[in-house]
């Protein structure tokens, strides 16, 4: 007896967003990355087009305070953002670089916006992949930093962030004037997510220049909330809600590596087993879980986990 496969047909699809710009497009990237464009739920290839998720590896402008389980996998690169980025691309296969300008923090090194812009230029020069650039997290400082970075990298089509409901205007203006794409972050709330997209779009930034950051949580720390918010956003988008139909960015590396499970040694918690393996599993499971609900850009830190997730993506995409 033949079985008829039931296929769900959606009226909407996720908008396509291109990151980076080649020299013909006004930038200096050797290649661009296209995300979104999905017309079905994740990896249900038989129902419609499914786009490949990409991995962005994190680079900072100053040496990181990461656990040794991460740092020992890298070479002597932490004092040179360019070299760090290059290793991520060449050795670990990162599709993009996620550059966080931690050094700008007024409570830390308090680097000037010009210094930050210089670091961005350095990383742009070191690698050919597109860049994601975010500030230090201090909203007043980040306003200046992002404006300087956006201007210095005019035409590169960076993915800049993070714009929130209270701060979106500077970011949206910088993205519009200097031709970049924007991360719009909402606190695990589909309504605020949509409201922010509307606000940014009403300022004049086209919808295909916006990427959603739904704000996720690591495995064991509320990932199910993130999952259900992302699922609702994705179903809304496929149901033709244009204001939710953007690809999603997930800061997996940050969330997974701030859990106790990714940091506590086997001496402290023998029942949990070896930390190196555990940290890899924690980050890659957080990533693959969120991939199943539509994460398009997965930000990661652990090179070994990147390898696992890339393999997982390959398998899920080989149909």
């Amino acid at each position: 007896m033949s079985v008829a496969i039931v296929k769900e047909r959606f009226s909407g699809k996720i908008g396509e967003v291109i990151l980076g710009a080649t020299s013909e497009q006004g930038g200096t990237r050797t290649s661009t990355v296209t995300i979104g464009g999905d017309a079905a739920l994740p990896f249900l290839h038989f129902e419609g087009k499914v786009n490949r998720p990409v991995i962005a590896m994190e680079v900072n402008d100053i040496p990181p305070t990461w656990n040794e389980t991460l740092t020992k996998q890298y070479g002597d690169v932490f004092n040179s953002p360019g070299a760090w980025a290059k290793q991520c691309v060449d050795d670990f296969g990162a599709d993009l670089i996620y550059l966080k300008l931690t050094g700008a923090d007024p409570d830390g090194e308090n680097r000037s916006p010009e210094d930050c812009a210089r670091v961005v230029k350095e990383v742009l020069a070191a690698v050919g992949v597109p860049l994601i650039v975010v500030g230090c997290g201090d909203s007043t400082k980040d306003n200046e930093v992002i404006a300087a970075v956006a201007e210095a990298a005019t035409g590169e089509n960076l993915l800049i962030g993070v714009a929130e409901q209270e701060t979106y205007k500077t970011y949206a203006a910088a993205a519009m004037v200097h031709k970049h794409t924007l991360i719009a972050q909402s606190p695990l709330d589909i309504n605020i997510c949509k409201q922010l997209n509307i606000l940014i779009n009403e300022m004049g930034l086209p919808l295909n220049k916006i990427v959603i950051d739904p704000l996720i949580a690591g495995l064991g720390f509320g990932i199910e909330y993130a999952y259900s918010i992302m699922e609702r956003a994705r179903l809304g988008a496929l149901g033709n809600d244009k204001m939710l139909a953007m690809p999603m960015f997930c800061s997996v590396g940050y969330e997974a590596n701030r859990t106790k499970e990714s940091n506590s040694s086997a001496d402290e918690n023998p029942q949990w087993g070896d930390l190196d393996d555990r940290a890899v599993l924690w980050e890659s499971l957080t990533a693959s879980g969120l991939m199943q609900v539509g994460a398009s850009i997965i930000m990661m830190r652990n090179p070994a986990a990147v390898k696992v997730v890339k393999k997982n993506i390959d398998e899920l995409m080989s149909v």
């Binding site: 709330d189 309504n191 605020i192 409201q195 509307i198 204001m243």
Partner: peptide, 15 residues
């Protein structure tokens, strides 16, 4: 609660 948050917008999150 869900309706409330989506109504905290002018006029509404759902245009």
């Amino acid at each position: 609660m869900d309706e409330y948050v989506s109504a905290l917008f002018l006029p509404h999150t759902d245009f």
